[in-house]
Computed example of a mutant assay.
Amino acid sequence: MTALEQEKTAPPGIPAVDPAKIMNLMDRVMRDMSGAMTGILCAIGVRLGLFREMAMSGPVTSVELAARTGLDERYIREWLHGLTGAGYLEAHRPSGGFLLPPELAMVIAVEGSPFNLSAGYELMPALAGMTGEVCEAFATGAGVEQDRYPAEFYEAMERMSASWFDTMLVQQWIPSAGDVAARLQRGGRVADIGCGHGRAVITMALAFPESRFVGYDAYGPNVEAAREAAEDAGVAGRVKFARKDATKGLRGHYDLVTAFSVLHDAPSPVALLRAVRGVVAPDGVFLLLESAAADDPVDNTGPTASVLYATSLMYCLPTSLADGGPGLGTLGLPPARIREYCGEAGFRSIRALPSANPFNALYEIRP
């Protein structure tokens, strides 16, 4: 096609276009739309326990799945066909049933699997429901307060991080940080900054019964949920949770201080790091988990970056701005900036540790 013919295919004011590229991009957009729609189907499957039920059996028909779950057969049938069309499920023609491959079950159905990403699907409806408020923030430059987000969002976030805490925290992360594990086995003091619902604190308390723990969070509902979880886990006698802005006065000295995916949300990251520096024992460790990010933002590409940037835009950025923070965003603390901020706060040693997770970067930081 000549340049003149290309120009004729474009609307007025649009530069000349390549029809072949248009077709390729249409295919890309359709695949992305398909992924988004498939995500909705998967969110339904996670919420209603359909994946979990399918993971416990071989091929299952819509009638059988309806009987097992107590849900409507016609809706289940449409859901099964939708995910079969998406390539998530396999049709088993001899039985007329549908199969969830066991490998995929490890990713979206099996609780306790270190590969489980199912909570990510539950984030989608909760964040999508905030689209209107985030669009308003585009116009005003203001933030969106934490309490504007639905409880389902925080529950999904807790479930997402639970897979890391349950399978990596005491098994890999703490043992990789020098002699910390041995000290906690003998009995040490631990503080967790931005504790959320307390999953990390409780996981550590169960693993190190001789140690004492405190979790700090500035969001009241998180603290209440954490206290209830500690009671349920039977560790309330060794674990305390406090509603507090950690930049405004931590007390005591701790063998281990942790901050899991909270520093980029802090109103003042350097002030928070200084507060942590003031309470880490001279021979103690600050264990910092942040999103894995490139020093140059344009190098953050691919599916993981897309998920993290979308989460940042819909939650981390607006809530940080609402708190008067710098709005770093989920990917706003790459290695160079972490080292810069830690140096300003007075830390002398920063060592990257293996996180065994493509979403995260883990650091051992010492006074």
Results as ranks from 00 to 15, higher is better:
K244Y: 01
P125N: 09
F347H: 02
G249K: 02
G70S: 06
L250A: 03
A230F: 01
V134P: 04
M23K: 12
L206D: 07
P12S: 12
A36N: 06
P354Y: 07
W164V: 15
P114M: 09
P358Y: 05
T203Q: 00
A10F: 08
L328I: 11
G188N: 05
D147K: 12
P150H: 06
L50V: 01
V298W: 02
C42T: 04
N357D: 03
Y154K: 14
G220N: 10
M204F: 05
V201N: 06
H197M: 14
R77N: 11
P297Y: 12
G141M: 11
D32L: 09
G39A: 12
V285N: 02
G215Q: 02
R189G: 11
V63M: 13
D27A: 15
R189I: 13
F165A: 13
D217M: 10
L4M: 09
F347A: 01
L273P: 04
V144H: 00
F260N: 06
G220V: 11
L287M: 03
A177L: 03
D299N: 09
A67Q: 15
D323M: 13
C342H: 02
D18A: 13
G188L: 07
E111S: 12
P11I: 09
P150N: 04
A191P: 01
T258H: 04
C135P: 09
F115R: 13
V190Q: 00
Y149V: 07
M23E: 14
E53W: 05
S118L: 11
L321R: 07
R251G: 11
P19A: 13
Y216A: 04
L272R: 03
T304I: 05
L123G: 05
G141Q: 09
T330F: 08
M314Q: 00
F286I: 08
Q146Y: 11
P101K: 14
D255Q: 07
E103S: 15
S62G: 09
C135S: 14
V201S: 01
M124E: 06
L89V: 11
L80V: 02
G332F: 06
P354A: 08
A345G: 01
A200H: 03
P354I: 05
V201D: 00
M314N: 00
P297V: 07
S118E: 12
R274F: 01
T131E: 00
P297K: 08
G252D: 05
G220K: 13
S113G: 03
G120K: 08
E136C: 07
F138W: 10
M106H: 13
F138G: 10
Y219V: 09
P209A: 09
